[in-house]
């Protein structure tokens, strides 16, 4: 197998894309199959929760897209640290810590992250990480505070983390088209759409206060 030069680089990226795509699809199937029948409910509920709010979903996708735009090391650093930050936010929500303004923050996250992707912003890595981390914290907190009792905690947590991670992976996989000139346009457009959606969520959140 050719492992040097530009061709190798392309095939490596393609390998990454294929791997990420296959993993994204296969993981929930394999994971779900390992759940004892009666308790599948906990896993599925946990899995569906991050997908239940469109404001969450678009923000997660935006993080993935932005990571793809920022390239290395963000493209791998973000997927590694983000679930942890979000889980920490969830932890805070579960133990009843107070983190006010999460709804505004979540709506804002869609707007800001979408805008960053649209403008193809490239701040220094610590800034990007801090921004993503802060928003992730609020997202996690909102989920944690909403968690229903009476579920199988372990399975719920696993489903939840899996869904979040897969949304991320989807965002990155989509963002990989960034390699090609037409891809860059697609990604930025997607960012713009997300920003618009975020703006709308923000409007809603502010209006309902």
């Amino acid at each position: 197998m050719n492992t040097t030069g530009r061709d190798a680089s392309v095939s490596r990226r393609r390998g990454f894309a294929v791997g990420a795509g296959v993993t994204a699809v296969a993981t929930p199937l394999v994971a779900g199959a390992h759940i004892v029948k009666g308790e599948a409910i906990g896993f599925v509920t946990g899995f569906l929760h991050p997908l239940s709010g469109l404001d969450h979903v678009v923000a997660m996708l935006a993080v993935g897209l932005w990571g793809a735009q920022l390239g290395r090391p963000a493209i791998w650093l973000l997927p590694v640290t983000f679930p942890l930050v979000m889980a920490f936010g969830g932890f805070l929500g579960l133990i009843g810590a107070s983190l006010p303004g999460s709804e505004i923050a979540i709506a804002l996250s869609g707007l800001c992250l979408g805008a960053a992707v649209l403008a193809a912003l490239r701040p220094p890595l610590p800034v990007a990480a801090a921004m993503v981390g802060l928003f992730g914290l609020f997202h996690g907190y909102a989920h944690g505070a909403e968690l229903p009792p009476g579920q199988n905690a372990l399975l719920y947590s696993l489903g939840f983390v899996l869904a979040t991670g897969l949304l991320h992976a989807t965002g990155i996989t989509l963002g990989l088209v960034h390699r090609w000139p037409w891809g860059r346009v697609v990604v930025r457009t997607a960012g713009g759409t997300i920003a618009a959606a975020g703006g709308w969520f923000l409007w809603e959140a502010l209006a309902s206060r």
């Binding site: 990454f16 791997g19 942890l84």
Partner: peptide, 29 residues
């Protein structure tokens, strides 16, 4: 290949994240 290492580390963070949520859960319920 880089992506295997990344995928493995991502899986690790998922596991740790699940553990963190589980800890919060135990504290709450």
């Amino acid at each position: 290949r880089l992506w295997t290492i990344v995928a493995a580390r991502v899986a690790g963070s998922w596991l740790a994240a699940a553990g963190l949520l589980l800890a919060g859960w135990i504290l709450r319920y």
